[in-house]
Design a binder for these strands. Sequence first.
DNA 1: GACATTCTAGCTATCTCGGG
DNA 2: CCCGAGATAGCTAGAATGTC
Length: 363
Amino acid sequence: MIINMETELRDYLYITNLYKCITNYHRQGHQIGRKIGDMLELLTLGVIYKKPDLKKHLITEGKLTGYSSANHNVEFCFFQNPKDEENLFGAIECKCVGVETTKSKSITLKNPGEFFNINLSGKWTSFSTNVACTIKDISTTSVEILLTNSAGDAVPTIYSLSVGQNIKLILDEHNNFICTTPNCEDMLTEVPQIIRICKIIELSKISNNSCIFNLYNCIPGPQTIEKAKQASLVAIDLRKKIDNIWNKTDLPSEQKKMTFIHVICEASHWGNKSKDIISTYIDYNLIVPDAIMIYAFKKFENIYGSEKMLKHIKKSQFKKDFQLQKVISNILDHFDNHIFYDLETGQYVTLTITNNKLCIQPI
DNA sequence: GACATTCTAGCTATCTCGGG
DNA sequence: CCCGAGATAGCTAGAATGTC
């Protein structure tokens, strides 16, 4: 199957569907975030391995020195002569920026009947959805809360939260208000639509008949712009060194020796300014659709189990582990090798070597 | 091979600034 | 003055590397 990108592209920022998937694993942000990056690299590596003429020029984690003398660790480097790492002609850098979960405040409540409010509204909404969370009962290990919402389109609901558990208040792209079950085990099913606002209520602890709630905001990757600057600098520094030009349009592409490709996932976090930066300075920017990343995580979960799967998501494992190579290859096949979606032309592309140069080609 | 150290890259807290 | 968005600064898990 080929993912129709119309189902994912929007003209506003939203919280990626991949977030729903990885939330189910209940891992720490750092831990799972790194693995998303690694999965993106594995898929990219899988594409390269399917092309023997690309693979034979490949060096992974190469240290490249730019015009400025700065060193850049680039995930995938292509040399005409890979043995001696001579004559660089291509580089691929992968970047992902996940959902940021920031604590907004901590609230302590003592008696049944006490409550706090959470507001879910955005610039685009003409109304505001107010959610009131009222304490019904406090036991030694759990708290019963009543949620009512001003939109009136959901009946008041009672939840029982154990210490450490959370519920998520969500406004989807059709302005539906949804509250997940405590410690939601399958957010993909519970929240089928695209999420525009997500706030988390977590029961932090219970002591002396009072309970403490932590409130979190979920924000779609505000630091994409920093990643954009970082990737752009690497592209420029290498371009100046190899082709002696600053700008990607300073030479016709057939006269350039080197191509820099940037692969991103969770593309819905990349705002216009971030996209403008990378498309100004980087030759090609390719998006891996959320649906492919989600499918890959599900596949790893099925094969390795949710406990052990993270161990298998790493590049160093890929080179020696033929089963892992097969898993990745099958994932790519499942999407008819339509993995990279070109940000600028809006079509799926594949990597090729043409006239000793790294190129992309529409498929 | 076990343990320590360093490094990378993604996550999060804080600061700043502008609009209401 | 408050709030929220954008920008910056700082933090940390896991991988890579070094040391014994």
